[in-house]
């Protein structure tokens, strides 16, 4: 009994010191990380806004992929939307932002956070990866399988089909959501 208590106290002491070290590190790093996230989010919004004015944000809670929308204003009328998307990738949940016209045509998209495999799914954050979805959503369907891509694009997503499909489904869902809004707000 005394021996078990002693072992418990030793483990408790080690855990307490580790918890203190982690709390201290977190108190230093958390504000820096939060600031970086805000800057990245702002940069991403500006990158996908198509030069239009970024308007008000509305949270969306009843959709599978869509988490929020932001109006894009052209001379104070709604010209399109930025849609915040969340989709399950190979390494866990991924978040991205995509902009659409009122008719649901995708303009630009950018990956925000993910845990995809370096060298494979992680390629989705590279410049140009989202180009394969540009202009899709209306007359041209969003490519949700590799067979809908050109040979070069299919080669580029080789080895990371889960990531590609997850992003494609989210972009397609965003397009559908915007079509239903139809510039109504």
């Amino acid at each position: 009994m005394t021996k078990n208590l002693k072992y418990g106290l030793i483990l408790l002491s080690i855990c307490a010191v580790c918890a203190f070290a982690l709390a201290l590190t977190n108190s230093i790093t958390a504000p820096v990380i939060r600031m970086q996230d805000e800057v990245n989010q702002k940069k991403a919004l500006e990158a996908v806004s198509n030069g239009w004015t970024i308007g008000t944000r509305s949270e969306v809670t009843d959709q599978a992929y869509v988490t929020y929308t932001i109006d894009l204003l052209d001379n104070s009328s709604v010209a399109g939307y930025v849609v915040g998307l969340s989709t399950p990738g190979y390494g866990g949940q991924m978040t991205l932002v995509a902009s659409y016209t009122n008719s649901g045509e995708m303009l630009f998209a950018q990956l925000l956070t993910h845990n995809e495999t370096p060298g494979l799914g992680k390629k989705a954050e590279q410049e140009g990866y989202m180009d394969k979805f540009k202009g899709s959503g209306t007359e041209k369907a969003v490519p949700t399988s590799k067979s809908m891509l050109s040979d070069a694009d299919a080669q580029a997503v080789s080895g990371s089909s889960v990531t590609f499909t997850a992003i494609a489904k989210a972009i397609a869902a965003g397009s559908e959501y915007v079509k239903n809004l139809g510039g109504a707000r």
């Binding site: 580790c18 590190t25 820096v32 970086q36 845990n115």
Partner: peptide, 27 residues
Amino acid sequence: VVIASLVTITEMVMHAFVPSVYSALGV
């Protein structure tokens, strides 16, 4: 406990101060 704490500290420090390396290493 010691190893997991050290890894978490490394992760937090890299995330805050060398985000490009943190992002490159991912999971």
